[in-house]
Simulated scan of single mutants.
Amino acid sequence: MANRSHILMDFKNMDTASPEMIHNALKSHRYSLRNSSLAPEDHIPLTKEEKDKYDFQQRRNQNPHPRMLQLIAGIPFIIGMVLLVVLIPILLFNQTANIVTDKVPFLLTGLSVCIKLAWSTLETDVRMIEPFYILSKRHASPKVLTLDYSSLAFGWMPIRAFLNGHFLVGFVGLGSVLAEVLTVCATSFGTVSGMDFVSRPPDRGHSGQGTPKNSSSYAGPDGDSGIDAGEETYFSFWVSFILALAILIFLCLVATYVYVRRRHPFLPRQPNTIASILGFIHQSKMLYDFVGTEKLNNDDMVERLVGIGKTYGLGWFTGRDGEMHCGVDEEELASNYKHGDDARKATMPWTTNWSDY
C-alpha cells in the first residue's frame, strides 16, 4: 500500500533509526489511506498538541529486541516456572505448607495466571518477529512476505505454524493453550490436601468424591473427619496434579528453546509499527514487483509473487538510489545484518579511525 506513495521519501536515512528518531522525523506530517494506498496530507497543518501527542516519555533500551525475548526477562521467567513446579507438590503434600493454601486458596491460581500472562507476552513477540527472522536467514520464499501470525486466532495459530513447518512458533502457540489449562488445574488445588489422596484411595463402594474442608460428613475407619478434598475426586485430583506439572515442564522446555534460538537481535528495531516497517523497504527494489497489487487479497498476492520467482532476505542491499541500505529486499543482498555493524562504513573509509588498527 506504499509502493507508489510519495511518503517513502520521508524515510530517507531511517534504515537503522530508532523508533524515537522515526517519530521525531514524522510527527510533523499527516497521512491518510486513499485508494488502498498511504498518501501525505501536509496541506492540513498539525497543531503543537497533535505533534507532541505521542512523544516518548522515557528512554528505550538500546537493545532493539522485544524485552520478553531478552535474557533479562527470560531467565527470571524460566526460574519462576521451575520454582512453581517445586512449590506445587510442597504445598499439596506437606501438612505444614498446606496451611498456606488453606489460608490463601487463590495463591497457586494467582501464580498460574502470572505465568499465563507472561507467556502471552512471549507469544505475541514471537508471532511478530517470526517473518523477519526467516528473512534474516536469507533466500526466503515469497510466501514469507505475506506471512502473518499476529492476526491468527488463539488455538488456530499453532496448527497453522506446524503446517508451515515453523515448529518453534507452533510450540509457543501450543504453550498458550496449555497455560489456560494450567490455570484451571491450579484453581482446583486451593481447597484440597494432597496427603488425603495418597493415604486414603477411594474404596469400591465410594464414589471417590471428597468432602469439603472441615467437614465431618464422611468419617474414615479411624473416626477422623474425612478427606480434605473440597469438590475434587481421587481421579480428578491426580489428573489435575499430573497435568499441571507436565504443562509447567513443557513450558520450561519451550521457553528455553525460544531463548536459545531467538534471544539475539537480528533487526535494527522492532517491526511493531507501520513506520518501522516502511523504514525497512523505502529503498527496496522489490517494490517494483508490488505495482498494481494494492487491492489484491493475500492469496492473489502470494500467487503473483511466487510467479515472479524471486527470493527475499533481510540485510544490507544496494537501493534504488544506488546507496547502501538496511532492510528487506530481493536477493542477492550485499550482506547479512549483524546488530551493531554498519555496512555503509565499508564504502566510507574516511569515517574510520585508523589509529585503532
Rank of each mutant, 00 (worst) to 15 (best):
E294L: 07
E323D: 12
F93N: 02
R269P: 09
Q283R: 11
Q58V: 10
H206M: 02
P201R: 04
L111Q: 03
I7Y: 01
Q57H: 00
S36W: 06
L46H: 06
L305P: 04
H65Y: 08
D341P: 04
D102L: 06
W354I: 03
R262A: 12
T187M: 13
L296K: 09
Y149H: 13
F290I: 05
T146E: 14
V306R: 12
N297M: 07
S276M: 07
R160Q: 14
A275R: 00
A255L: 01
K116I: 05
Q209R: 01
D15N: 13
L174R: 15
Q62W: 15
G208R: 14
E180Y: 14
D15Y: 13
A219W: 13
L38Q: 00
L69V: 03
V126M: 13
V291Q: 15
I90R: 12
G223F: 01
R59N: 03
M68Q: 13
C326M: 11
R304Q: 13
S215L: 01
G230A: 14
E232V: 15
E323T: 14
A39S: 00
D341N: 08
Q95S: 06
F235W: 15
G210I: 01
I7P: 01
M68A: 07
R4I: 11
F56M: 15
V86P: 06
I72N: 12
I79F: 05
S284P: 03
A186I: 06
E323V: 06
V177P: 09
G313T: 09
P76A: 10
K310F: 05
N35V: 00
R200F: 12
A275L: 04
E41H: 08
L243T: 15
L248D: 11
Y218R: 08
